[in-house]
Simulated scan of single mutants.
Amino acid sequence: MRIAALCLLLMPWVVQAEEWKVVGDEQFAPYSFVTIEDDLPRGLDVELVEAVMQEAKLPYSLRLYPWERVKRMLDRGDVAMAFQFAGTPERMQQYELVGPIRTGSTVFMTSRKTNLTDWAELDDLSPYIIGQVRGYAYQSDFDKADLRRDSSAQNPRQLVSMLLAGRIDVIVGDRVQLMYFVREQRAEQSVRILAKPLVEMPRYVAFTKGDRTRADPFAAALERLRQAGTLDAIYQRWH
Rank of each mutant, 00 (worst) to 15 (best):
R2C: 02
C7A: 15
L8F: 12
M11Y: 12
M11R: 09
M11D: 02
W13K: 04
V15Q: 12
E18W: 10
E19H: 14
W20G: 05
W20E: 05
V22S: 02
V22F: 03
G24I: 01
D25I: 01
E26H: 09
F28S: 05
P30R: 02
P30E: 07
F33S: 13
F33M: 14
D38G: 02
R42C: 04
G43I: 02
L44E: 11
L44H: 06
V46N: 07
E47V: 01
L48E: 07
L48D: 06
E50V: 09
E55T: 00
K57T: 12
P59F: 09
Y60D: 12
S61E: 15
R63G: 02
L64H: 08
L64Q: 07
E68T: 15
V70N: 13
V70G: 13
R72S: 14
V79M: 08
F85H: 04
F85A: 07
P89A: 12
E90W: 06
M92F: 07
M92L: 09
M92D: 10
M92R: 13
Y95S: 08
V98D: 06
G99I: 04
G99D: 08
G104N: 12
G104W: 00
T106P: 00
N115P: 15
T117I: 12
D118M: 04
E121K: 15
L122R: 13
D123H: 12
P127I: 10
I130L: 05
G131Q: 04
G131K: 03
G131D: 03
Q132N: 09
R134A: 13
R134I: 08
R134H: 13
Y138H: 12
S140M: 13
S140P: 03
S140F: 14
A145T: 08
S151D: 14
Q154G: 14
Q154F: 09
Q154D: 08
L164W: 06
A165K: 14
G166W: 07
I168G: 01
V170N: 08
V170F: 10
R175S: 10
E184N: 02
A187W: 03
Q189P: 00
S190G: 01
S190Q: 15
S190L: 11
S190N: 12
I193F: 13
I193P: 03
L194Y: 03
K196S: 08
P197I: 14
E200H: 15
R203F: 15
V205K: 00
A206M: 06
A206L: 06
G210A: 12
A215V: 06
D216L: 15
P217M: 14
A219K: 07
A221K: 02
L222E: 01
R224E: 15
L225P: 00
L225Q: 03
R226F: 05
Q227A: 08
A228F: 01
G229H: 03
T230A: 11
L231S: 05
H239A: 08
